[in-house]
Amino acid sequence: MSEDTIKGRVADAVKGHWVDTRAPDWLRPYARLARWERPIGWWLLLWPCWWSAALAAIAGGAAYPDPWHLLLFMIGAIAMRGAGCTYNDLVDQDIDDKVARTRSRPLPSGQVTPLQAKVFLVAQALVGLAVLLQFNGFAILLGMASLAVVAVYPFMKRVTNWPQLFLGLAFSWGAFMGWAAAFGRLDWPAVALYAGGILWTIGYDTIYAHQDKEDDALVGVKSTARLFGDRTRPALVLLYGGATALFAAALVGAGGGILAFVGLAAGFMHLMRQIAVLDIDDNDQCLKLFRSNAQFGWILFAGLVADALARTLF
């Protein structure tokens, strides 16, 4: 066993992170299971929640989204993203062991046992449940309904070329939650936000999946990166363009003003830049562009919050 494995390091993990430098040895494999050193995952899960909360603030005439809801969504996103990664690793042990980038992960490398991973999964899920129970009854039921999509997602790469669609169904669920937490119901602006989030997710995860397309082909894993191939750029234009149109529809439905649309326009420019510079054969660039979607989240959220605030001040 290598020194890196003993210390709980993983080939595709961020180097020099606090998990490597400060976490005790016993915690490192669990931190790797939850991907704590890679916050981009929980940011991408969190953004639809925060967008929805900000959209609800606009629709409800509030100056800003409920800060308590924003905090709860952040805690829940971190916990449930970690639980999802742990679950995904349990399902994918056989695949991860065959891929160079993932075979040093805690489960295939033997740093944790499947039983230990399952206990850790339950612990993270309980944190998520504790967060969910802080909301109204409708939002609680809605949040629980998301588990069906989460449960099937890891298996989709075995049966369809569109596993990114199922990731979008799961990761965009927060577009319902912010609205439901504010109003105790769903309205069509939240549905439009959800649909846009799905297309956005398919787009950014297609970019991410180009890192693994060669290994995926060898082990029989399907993805939109393999499906689109050299047609990835025009596919992204359709996906990101469709996402922007649906986000715009959500803004119209919620009564969004000029600042919300300015934020959306700036976000669209950010997405188009991703497409313009994309090199699907440059793994490092694909990872960088994937991570840049956190910036897109901030841009859109800032526009929504600024619009809500401006409507109450002027």
Rank of each mutant, 00 (worst) to 15 (best):
A248L: 09
A248R: 11
A248Q: 07
A249T: 15
A250K: 08
A250H: 10
L251F: 11
L251P: 07
L251Q: 06
L251M: 11
L251N: 07
V252C: 12
V252G: 10
G253L: 12
A254Q: 05
G255S: 11
G255D: 10
G256L: 07
G257S: 14
I258R: 13
I258W: 11
I258H: 12
I258C: 11
L259I: 04
L259Y: 05
L259A: 05
A260E: 02
A260C: 07
G263Y: 00
G263T: 04
G263M: 00
L264I: 02
A265H: 00
A265Q: 04
A265R: 01
A265C: 05
A266L: 09
A266C: 10
A266S: 06
A266Y: 05
G267W: 00
G267K: 02
F268K: 08
F268C: 14
M269N: 08
M269T: 04
M269F: 05
H270D: 03
H270E: 06
H270Y: 02
H270P: 04
L271M: 12
R273D: 00
R273E: 02
R273H: 02
Q274A: 11
I275L: 03
I275N: 04
I275T: 14
A276E: 09
A276P: 07
A276I: 11
V277G: 01
V277A: 02
V277Y: 04
V277P: 01
V277N: 01
L278P: 06
L278I: 15
D279I: 14
D279V: 15
D279H: 15
D279A: 08
I280L: 07
I280Q: 05
I280T: 12
I280R: 13
D282N: 13
D282R: 13
D282E: 11
N283C: 11
D284N: 14
Q285H: 09
Q285R: 13
Q285P: 03
